[in-house]
Amino acid sequence: MRQLLPPTHPRHQKMVRDLLYGADATDQMVLTGAEIMHASTLRAFIEFMPALEGHDKRENLTALRDVPVEIFVGDSDKLTPKRHSRQLAEALPQAELHVVERTGHMIPQERAQLVTEAIERLLARATAERAVA
């Protein structure tokens, strides 16, 4: 199957686009995502699924309650439901939730500038708070 559908195959790219990306993703972004998926084995995906099913860290959120947090979710994300991001934002009083239009699961790739700006904001706040202390 992997040989029949390499990352450059149109069907592989359509599957990856539909699963991971929003409407504005470029063909190059999708090809990169297809290459990443192609490099992962089916066995790895299957063995990873139980860890995802049991991954509930809500009780650990208290460690983030008093720090700035930026939460991003694509409005077209098929892997991470928007309700999960909303629940995180509700549990974290200092969190800022960003629902990014026309974006799927691959936000750092699709909207690199937005993610970079968020990291810069967090770093600026952390360094300002440290300078005051």
Rank of each mutant, 00 (worst) to 15 (best):
M1K: 10
Q3L: 05
Q3I: 07
Q3M: 08
L4V: 04
P6C: 11
H9L: 07
P10C: 07
P10Q: 10
Q13S: 06
Q13K: 07
M15H: 11
R17S: 02
R17Q: 06
D18L: 10
D18Q: 08
D24C: 05
T26A: 05
T26K: 01
D27H: 00
D27T: 11
Q28V: 13
Q28L: 12
M29T: 03
V30M: 13
T32P: 04
A34T: 09
I36T: 01
M37N: 11
A39F: 08
S40T: 06
S40K: 00
T41M: 01
L42V: 05
R43V: 00
F45G: 00
F45V: 00
I46G: 00
E47A: 08
M49W: 00
P50F: 00
P50N: 03
A51M: 11
A51Q: 10
A51K: 10
L52N: 03
G54H: 06
D56E: 01
K57L: 12
K57A: 12
R58H: 14
R58P: 03
N60E: 15
T62D: 04
T62F: 00
L64C: 09
D66M: 13
V67S: 00
V67W: 12
V67A: 04
V67P: 10
P68C: 07
P68M: 15
E70I: 08
I71A: 10
V73Q: 04
D75T: 12
K78E: 05
L79P: 06
T80I: 13
T80P: 10
T80V: 15
P81V: 12
K82Y: 04
H84M: 09
H84T: 01
H84F: 06
S85E: 05
R86T: 11
R86Y: 12
A89G: 05
A89W: 01
A91S: 14
A91D: 15
P93F: 11
P93R: 12
A95E: 09
E96A: 06
L97Y: 08
V99Y: 12
V100R: 13
V100A: 09
E101N: 15
R102M: 07
I107D: 02
Q109R: 09
E117P: 01
E117C: 00
A118G: 03
I119S: 13
I119C: 15
R121F: 03
L122I: 14
L122H: 07
A124H: 08
A126C: 14
T127S: 08
T127N: 08
A128S: 05
E129P: 08
